[in-house]
Each structure stands twice: as structure tokens, then as C-alpha cells.
Amino acid sequence: MITVTHYIVLSAILFTLGVVGVLIRRNAIVVFMCIELMLNAVNLSFVAFAHYLHSMNGQLFVFFTMTVAAAEAAVGLAIIVAVFRNKETVNIDDINIMKW
């Protein structure tokens, strides 16, 4: 029997994987994919909670998250392309003109 706990644990694992990926990967596109993984882990927990609580609100939220993630992807990839045009790299260790 799969209960809500299983889904929540899975979503926590996926979220953690996303966070670790953002922190240790160096390719801007992979970092961005890890952020998307975090958002999708959150979506999973929204749906699981909505099912558990018998309320539609959580499922509604997922649609908004997906829409916003799509908008973010459009802007984010455009920014990465702009960086690549000027610098010919997407490695975030090389993108370091400004330091404190």
C-alpha cells in the first residue's frame, strides 16, 4: 500500500538531489535542470497532499508552478545563450568578472 508518506519522502529525496546538483554542478544548463528538478519535486508533494487532503487547491497550484517554470525556462535559456555569445562558455566557474 502506497501512502502519502511515500510520496512525501520521494519528493524530499528529489528536492535534495536538485539542491545538491545546483551546488556541485558547474554547467549553467545542468544547474538550471537541477532547479527544474526541485520545482518538480515540489509539484509532486503538492499533488500528494492534495490527494491526501481531498482538496483541489494543491493540484491547481501545480498548474501555476508549471506555467511559471515554463516562463522561467524561456528567460533563463535566453540569458544562457546571451552569455554564451559573449563568452563562448557556460561553465559558471569561468563567469567571474565581478568579485567582491
Binding site: 549553467a28 538550471f32 526541485m38 497532499f49 533563463g76 563568452k87 563567469i95
Partner: peptide
């Protein structure tokens, strides 16, 4: 300008992920 925008975007989206996870836990 490109670099500022990339940094802001990646870190901003990262922080939004935490905010959303918080919202989902509050909802649960």
C-alpha cells in the same frame, strides 16, 4: 550585464524553489 543576469536568474530560481517547498509543506 550578462553575468549579473545569469547569477541573478540562477540564484533567484534556486531561492524560489525553497519558497515553493515551504508553501507545499504549509499546505500539507
Amino acid at each position: 550585464s550578462n553575468e549579473a543576469s545569469l547569477k541573478y536568474f540562477l540564484l533567484g530560481a534556486f531561492a524560489t524553489g525553497f519558497l515553493l517547498y515551504g508553501v507545499s509543506i504549509i499546505y500539507g
